[in-house]
C-alpha cells in the first residue's frame, strides 16, 4: 500500500535484531511456521516458545504469559496471514492493556510457507490501521531496520501494549525448529522460572 512508506526487510534479520536487544530474560513466542523457524535460527533461548500449530494464537499465548508474569517483558512474533485469523485478539489486548506485551507482525502479504499465495489483505488492508482501530493506539510500521530497533527500544520501556509491523520479503525462514512440543513447553517453563528440571 502506498500509505506505507516502509522498507522491505527480512524476517530473520529483524528477528535477530530483536533478540540482540533482549537482556532481561524476556519471553518470546514464535507463531506457526516461519516466525518460529527464524526465532529458532536466531539462537535458542530458554525463554523462547515455538508454536507447531494453532495458527493465529501467538498473540493470545503471549498475552497469557504477560498476565501470568507482569514483571517480565513478553514479545510475540506473528505472520500477517496468521494475524488475519485472529484479529479479535487485538481488541482483547487493547481492553486488558498489559504493560509488558509487544506484538510484532511480519507482513509479507502472503502465506509464504504454504506456497506463497497472497492473503486476502495483501495490498488492500493496513494491519497497523486495523490494530489502531482495534484500540491498540501504540501501533506502528517500522520504516527500516534502524526504526525497527528504535521501536523495540521504546517497547522495552513502554507502559502499555505495543504493536510493531515490519514489511518483509518473501523468503522462507532460515532454520527448522525441532518439533518436540513437550520439550519446548517444559524448557520454556524452566526458562520462565516456573519449574525446575528433574
Amino acid at each position: 500500500m502506498d500509505t506505507r512508506n516502509t522498507k522491505v526487510m527480512n524476517r530473520f534479520d529483524v528477528t535477530s535484531r530483536l533478540i540482540a536487544k533482549l537482556k532481561n530474560e524476556e519471553a518470546v513466542i514464535g507463531g506457526i511456521g516461519n516466525t518460529n523457524f527464524d526465532l529458532w535460527a536466531a539462537g535458542h533461548r530458554p525463554q523462547n516458545f515455538y508454536m507447531l500449530g494453532s495458527m493465529g494464537l501467538a498473540f493470545p499465548i503471549a498475552l497469557g504469559v504477560a498476565l501470568a508474569q507482569p514483571d517480565r517483558r513478553v514479545f510475540a512474533l506473528e505472520g500477517d496471514g496468521s494475524l488475519l485469523m485472529q484479529l479479535g485478539t487485538l481488541s482483547t489486548i487493547a481492553t486488558l492493556k498489559p504493560k509488558n506485551l509487544t506484538m510484532i507482525v511480519m507482513d509479507n502479504g502472503i502465506y509464504q510457507i504454504t506456497g506463497a499465495q497472497p492473503t486476502p489483505a495483501a495490498g488492500i488492508a493496513d494491519l497497523v490501521a486495523i490494530a489502531a482501530g482495534s484500540g491498540l493506539t501504540n501501533s506502528s510500521w517500522a520504516a527500516d531496520e534502524d526504526d525497527f530497533e528504535r521501536l523495540i527500544d521504546e517497547a522495552l520501556e513502554a507502559s502499555g501494549p505495543s504493536l510493531i509491523a515490519a514489511r518483509i520479503d518473501d523468503k522462507p525462514g532460515v532454520g527448522t525448529t525441532r518439533r518436540d512440543p513437550v520439550q519446548i513447553r517444559e524448557r520454556f517453563m524452566h526458562g520462565l522460572g516456573v519449574r525446575e528440571p528433574l
Binding site: I61, L63, G64, V65, A66, L192
Partner: peptide, 9 residues
C-alpha cells in the same frame, strides 16, 4: 491460547 500461555507462566 491465553490460558495456555498463562499456565506456562
Amino acid at each position: 491460547g491465553i490460558v495456555s500461555g498463562a499456565w506456562m507462566g
